[in-house]
Design a protein around this nucleic acid. Structure first.
Lengths: 248, 248
DNA sequence: ACCTCCCCATTGTGATCACATTAATGGCGC
DNA sequence: GCGCCATTAATGTGATCACAATGGGGAGGT
């Protein structure tokens, strides 16, 4: 992480808070040449995708700045970006929060997933090498392990990596971007559902997807992805949205 | 537009450049309570959507700041937001530009439009009032007029308003956001195509869509929207992408 | 005990400066 | 004249300060 502005006062302040940040957040230092706001963005994005935030959580620029040990400036840029991706919401108060889920938003998310993700998998199929398949299997094992242990965050990270390891091979960056925005929008909600229910009851259709890939069966792959989406989203949808008292 | 920081130097500078900006750009002063970067965002967004930029155009923060008569700060936020929406691209040089179109991106854009927009229209159908229909017809007349005169920007603005006047009624903000991002990505490309070919050969399926809405015929509406997309995108696709020499 | 008003802390926003890096330019040698 | 290199200009990024607006909390009144 390149650090400019090495006047005495600045340096001292940064060093002090930096130490604190390293204790609190496992934010990667980032590859060289990558801007600070990019690293902040990745850190926040991971927290949203993998269950580091709950819906409705308030987010403040100065708070994040202190937590992550940087000035508010790169935080502003990263948060602005996440707002544009609908991962965060800027309410009329000009306050930033992790958007709560609604029945309507959830329905649109499920629709989009069912529409775009099987298509991405189908487009990827011909580009998935044997080495890719082995890597995907390895990822799926970590998913199973996390499910068994009940580690929500590890499960969510593994599940994300499983899906996008496939989708990535479609070389369809525009579609990928749309789907990633969708995942960012249900990440905190999924976290809340699993936090409430646990991952023990969980089942997925990863094995069917892997088998379909191995057989180069496009139709079966789309079906497996669809089934995985429907099953998973039903699970977390029923876990939370059916209780009208626990809306947030 | 709220303006803080009214020290002498700042004020003088801002006033001077503000006059220049009003001559150059028809940027709305914006409703009260709206932030400056929001107004900047809308201005840039409109220019991208309605043909104010060509693919490959370079964009600089200080340049825009001077043109629009504001400090670079709100420009940064607006540009960051547009980059997140894929309307602008941040290349490795850390320079910002209007992204050029590729064959692959174009195909994904067409796929997404054909997938999501008829769905949006179908969802909107039951919420379109008679007054809405009249408004949509009025918009379509401005589209016809612009086509006749050959006013590319007016045509693009009208076409956008026609489609989204329908889509808005779906009350599906997540889907709308996805489609708007897509429109931002082909806006400059469409402008280039029309700038090269002109709008005289243009035809659309707006009348069929309006008729379908009046008959509350969901199937016909989806077909009309699909036909409109296919016809329009084929037109601009052939106008540009088929010439391998004029890639940009 | 509860509601209301006022004060102060906190927050997002905009402006400005400093800096590293990349692009552009002009001059020099051949 | 033409290509190469050093110098300069321009650009994105981060830090810091100032300010308006919102929110929370406590005091005072009913």
């Amino acid at each position: 992480m390149s650090q400019r502005h090495t006047t005495d006062r600045t340096k001292r302040t940064l060093v002090r808070t930096r130490v604190k940040a390293e204790q609190l957040l496992p934010v990667e230092t980032g590859d060289i040449g990558v801007t600070t706001h990019e690293n902040v963005y990745r850190g926040l994005r991971d927290r949203i995708l993998f269950g580091g935030f709950l819906p409705g959580s308030a987010v403040t620029l100065r708070g994040l700045a202190e937590t992550m040990g940087v000035s508010p400036m790169p935080i502003r840029e990263a948060v602005r970006r996440l707002i544009a991706e609908r991962a965060l919401k800027l309410q009329d108060n000009r306050r930033v929060l992790v958007p709560p889920m609604t029945k309507e938003a959830f329905e649109q998310i499920v629709f989009t997933r069912k529409t775009l993700e099987p298509e991405l998998a189908a487009r990827a199929l011909d580009n998935i090498s044997d080495a890719d398949i082995r890597a995907i299997k390895t990822i799926d094992q970590t998913v199973d392990r996390a499910m068994g242990v009940g580690d929500v965050q590890a499960y969510m990270r593994g599940n994300y990596r499983f899906h996008f390891a496939i989708y990535q091979r479609a070389h369809a960056d525009i579609l990928i971007a749309l789907v990633e925005s969708i995942w960012l929008q249900f990440g905190p909600f999924m976290r809340m559902a699993y936090g409430r229910i646990g991952t023990s009851l969980l089942e997925d259709h990863h094995q069917a997807a892997i088998a379909a890939i191995e057989h180069r069966d496009r139709k079966a792959l789309k079906a497996a992805i669809t089934a995985d989406i429907v099953q998973g989203m039903n699970f977390i949808g029923e876990a939370v949205l059916k209780r009208p008292d626990l809306k947030t």
